[in-house]
């Protein structure tokens, strides 16, 4: 089977929300000696990005998003087996929380579902999480990245509080931070000193992967 058709099948398996097919394509790619990273980047990931785009347009819904993410995870698990250590170096842990005072977590859930498909282990602390708890969990889990979501202008200051607390405790250089949520902007990220800002879940995936490299 040609590289092109493997990549196309990989993408289609995700769009069709077909976990069995996704696993089958991943196995076939390995059997044919195709670079797993290429299959992931140019096949499965294209499918999941398309799914993310369709979701953001209201053309597919949460159950489909979740199930396609599951299919993606199953395929990634197969590909990971063949990466022999290389993958382990790339993958890291991430803490994700909606900040204290804020109970909005739909967007966070979507971001987590997509980020997990890329082999990042995400520890979801839920919503209304105090800064102390976020730092404590990051230390406990040995996370590389801390992501926070705020959907209210009144709770955004807790993202700044996290930056201040990390600095106070001498931990700021240990972690990369990323922020998101409807009222947040790159300007806000720059102002508080966060390492990255993501406008939506799809951008969040790319930004987190970038932060994981550092």
């Amino acid at each position: 089977m040609s590289l092109e058709s493997i990549l196309n099948d990989a993408k289609q398996a995700i769009l069709d929300i077909d976990e069995d097919k996704a696993v089958e394509v991943a196995r076939q790619a390995i059997a044919e000696g195709i670079d797993p990273v290429k299959v992931l980047a140019d096949g499965f990931s294209v499918g999941i990005r398309t799914i993310g785009d369709l979701f953001s347009r209201g053309e597919i819904f949460m159950p489909e998003l979740i199930l396609s993410a599951q299919a993606m995870k199953a395929a990634v698990a197969v590909l990971d087996e063949s990466l022999v250590g290389e993958a382990a170096e790339k993958i890291g842990k991430m803490i994700f929380a909606t900040v204290e005072g804020d109970v909005h977590d739909i967007g966070k859930g979507i971001a987590i579902a997509l980020i997990q498909t890329q082999g990042v282990e995400v520890i979801d602390l839920g919503r209304d999480v105090p800064v102390d708890k976020i730092i404590e969990e990051a230390e406990t889990h040995g996370a590389k990245v801390i992501g926070t979501s705020a959907l209210l202008t009144t709770t955004m200051p807790n993202q700044e509080k996290l930056e201040i607390e990390l600095r106070k405790r001498g931990l700021r250089e240990k972690y990369k931070t990323i922020i998101g949520g409807a009222p947040c902007t790159q300007r806000w990220a720059d102002k508080i000193g966060a390492d990255a800002y993501a406008e939506d879940a799809a951008e969040g995936v790319n930004k987190v992967l970038e932060l994981m490299k550092h």
Partner: peptide
């Protein structure tokens, strides 16, 4: 601006609600 489909299959008067603008 559109109804978020947390369920995805709910209908009202024969119209699926999720995704409506």
């Amino acid at each position: 601006e559109f109804v978020l489909g947390m369920h995805g299959k709910l209908e009202y008067d024969g119209t699926r609600i999720a995704g409506l603008y």
